[in-house]
Simulated scan of single mutants.
Amino acid sequence: MKRRRFHRAGRSGNAAIAAVTVFALCAGTWLLRDGTGAHPPPQPSAAEAHTGDDRSAGGSPVPALPPSPPLRVRIPAIDVDAPLTGLGLTATGSLDVPPADVANLAGWYEAGTTPGERGTAIVAGHVDNAEGPAVFYSLGALRKGSTVEVDRRDGGVAVFTVDAVEVYDAEDFPDTRVYGAADRPELRVITCGGGWSRTTGYRGNVVVYAHLTGSR
């Protein structure tokens, strides 16, 4: 299977994930095997993009949680309920990816910010694999105000509210916006998207922006 780059995060002061390149299997192997490309994943509409001050959207921020590794991610609006595996860096400085043969599995950058902690936490997962849709196949259908829940090793649950869902072509990926430092607990959920072709696979990425609005 062909690998496709998510993009390199620029160095940004407090960014715990500075200079990380995130990779995923984005060739759309399932669509290639299908032979028609008739089942591409949903893509976010312009209405779900950032507009004005998204800091006040979808609920008020709450104090940051202490660091604790995440165990599971749930996004009820798109029926995601998946375990999380820690992802390290490869020899070339890219973020490793979850096993492609396990469709319902996502990963998080374990050397960076933990979800709920102050800063920008990163979760990434496959859109599909050779067998069909994978964990984040429907990510582009998510809407502002939706909830993302992350179970943590300390027994708590970090609850995030979605501020925006955007799609970018590879050459226009906004590194600083996605990976840059944050002064509150924020979460990015990333998969492949931006259209698909038989020659290049997926042409970009879908990115969900969310901030912490609760815990239990």
Rank of each mutant, 00 (worst) to 15 (best):
Lys2Gly: 06
Arg3Leu: 12
Arg3Asp: 10
Arg4Tyr: 04
Arg5Ala: 11
Arg8Tyr: 06
Gly10Arg: 09
Ser12Phe: 04
Asn14Cys: 07
Asn14Ala: 11
Ala18Val: 01
Ala18Pro: 00
Ala19Lys: 13
Val20Cys: 04
Leu25Gln: 06
Cys26Ser: 13
Ala27Arg: 07
Gly28Lys: 11
Thr29Leu: 12
Trp30Met: 06
Leu32Ala: 12
Arg33Val: 10
Thr36Tyr: 03
Gly37Thr: 08
Gly37Ala: 13
Ala38Lys: 14
Pro40Gly: 05
Pro41Cys: 13
Ala46Asp: 15
Ala47Asn: 11
Ala47Phe: 05
Thr51Asp: 10
Gly52Met: 06
Asp53Arg: 12
Asp54Ser: 11
Asp54Lys: 02
Ser56Arg: 14
Ser56Gly: 14
Ala57Thr: 06
Gly58Lys: 01
Ser60Lys: 09
Val62Tyr: 09
Val62Met: 02
Pro63Met: 01
Ala64Asn: 03
Ala64Cys: 03
Pro69Val: 10
Pro69Glu: 15
Pro70Tyr: 04
Arg72Asn: 05
Val73Glu: 00
Val73Ala: 05
Ile75Trp: 06
Pro76Gln: 08
Ala82Glu: 11
Leu84Ile: 10
Gly86His: 03
Gly86Asn: 05
Leu87Glu: 00
Gly88Asp: 12
Leu89Met: 15
Leu95Ile: 04
Asp96Met: 14
Pro98Arg: 06
Ala100Met: 04
Asp101Arg: 11
Val102Gln: 07
Leu105Trp: 01
Gly107Glu: 05
Gly107Leu: 02
Glu110Asn: 12
Glu110Ala: 14
Gly112Arg: 02
Gly112Tyr: 00
Thr113Glu: 04
Gly119Pro: 05
Gly119Thr: 07
Ile122Ala: 05
Val123Phe: 08
Gly125Thr: 03
His126Ala: 06
His126Asp: 07
Val127Arg: 05
Asp128Pro: 03
Glu131Gln: 12
Glu131Asn: 15
Gly132Met: 11
Pro133Val: 15
Tyr137Met: 09
Leu139Asn: 00
Ala141Asp: 13
Ala141Leu: 07
Lys144Glu: 13
Lys144Pro: 06
Ser146Glu: 08
Thr147Pro: 03
Thr147Trp: 13
Thr147Gln: 14
Glu149Val: 04
Asp151Gly: 12
Arg152Ser: 08
Arg152Leu: 15
Arg153Pro: 09
Gly155Asp: 12
Gly155His: 09
Ala158Gln: 08
Val159Leu: 14
Val159Arg: 08
Val162Leu: 09
Val162Met: 09
Asp163Gly: 10
Ala164Ser: 12
Ala164Leu: 03
Val165Cys: 09
Asp169Asn: 13
Glu171Cys: 02
Asp172Phe: 10
Asp172Lys: 14
Asp175Trp: 05
Asp175Gln: 10
Thr176Asn: 08
Tyr179Asn: 09
Pro185Thr: 09
Arg188Lys: 10
Arg188Pro: 03
Arg188Tyr: 09
Val189Ser: 04
Thr191Met: 13
Thr199Ile: 10
Thr200Glu: 07
Arg203Glu: 05
Asn205Thr: 09
Val206Glu: 02
Val207Cys: 01
Val207Phe: 02
Val208Ile: 12
Val208Thr: 10
Gly214Arg: 03
